[in-house]
Simulated assay, not measured.
Amino acid sequence: MLTDRSGLIVWVTDLKAANKHLERYGSVHFISKRLHYAAMYVHASKLEETMKQLQKLAFVKKVERSYRNEIQTEYSNNGADKSSFYTL
C-alpha cells in the first residue's frame, strides 16, 4: 500500500540539528552539506500543517514545496526517425 507523498525542500542553518530533528516530520531523503538544505517527503494530507511546524523551528530558514510530481514525465515522439541515417 503506497501513501500519497509530497516533497519538501527545507533550507537550514544548522545541519546537525536538521539531521537530528527532521525525521520527526517525515522521511528525509537527502541533506546537502554544501548548500545547507534537506529534501524530504511528508504525507500529502498533512502537507500544509507540516510546513507550518517546520517553519517554526529555530534552525529552518525557509520551507519550499517540491513540484516534481506535477512535472510531465510522459513524452511523445513526434519527430522523424533518424535511426536509418546513423546505420552503416
Rank of each mutant, 00 (worst) to 15 (best):
D4W: 08
G79M: 13
A17P: 00
A39Y: 15
T13G: 03
E64W: 07
T87M: 12
I9Q: 02
A44G: 07
R24L: 03
G7D: 06
F85A: 09
K52E: 10
L22M: 10
A39W: 13
Q72C: 06
H43C: 01
M51W: 10
V42G: 01
L15F: 07
A39N: 02
E48I: 12
W11V: 02
Q72Y: 05
Y37G: 11
V28M: 04
L22R: 11
T73K: 07
F30H: 07
L47G: 01
L2H: 07
R24I: 12
M40N: 02
V60W: 04
F85W: 02
L35Y: 00
L47D: 00
T50E: 05
Y67G: 14
T73Y: 07
A44S: 09
Y75Q: 05
R34H: 02
S6V: 05
D4E: 12
N77W: 04
H29K: 02
E74Q: 11
K46I: 13
L57W: 13
N78E: 06
D81C: 12
T73P: 04
R34S: 08
F30I: 13
A44Q: 07
S27L: 05
M40A: 02
N69S: 08
N19G: 09
L2Q: 06
I31K: 06
N77L: 15
S6C: 06
K62G: 12
T13D: 10
A18E: 10
I31N: 02
Y25S: 00
M1G: 15
D4Y: 01
D14L: 06
V60G: 12
D14P: 03
Q55T: 12
Q53W: 01
L8I: 11
E49T: 15
V60K: 06
N19A: 07
Y75R: 01
Y86C: 02
H29Q: 05
S32G: 07
E74W: 11
D14K: 14
T3P: 05
G79C: 13
A17H: 04
E64M: 08
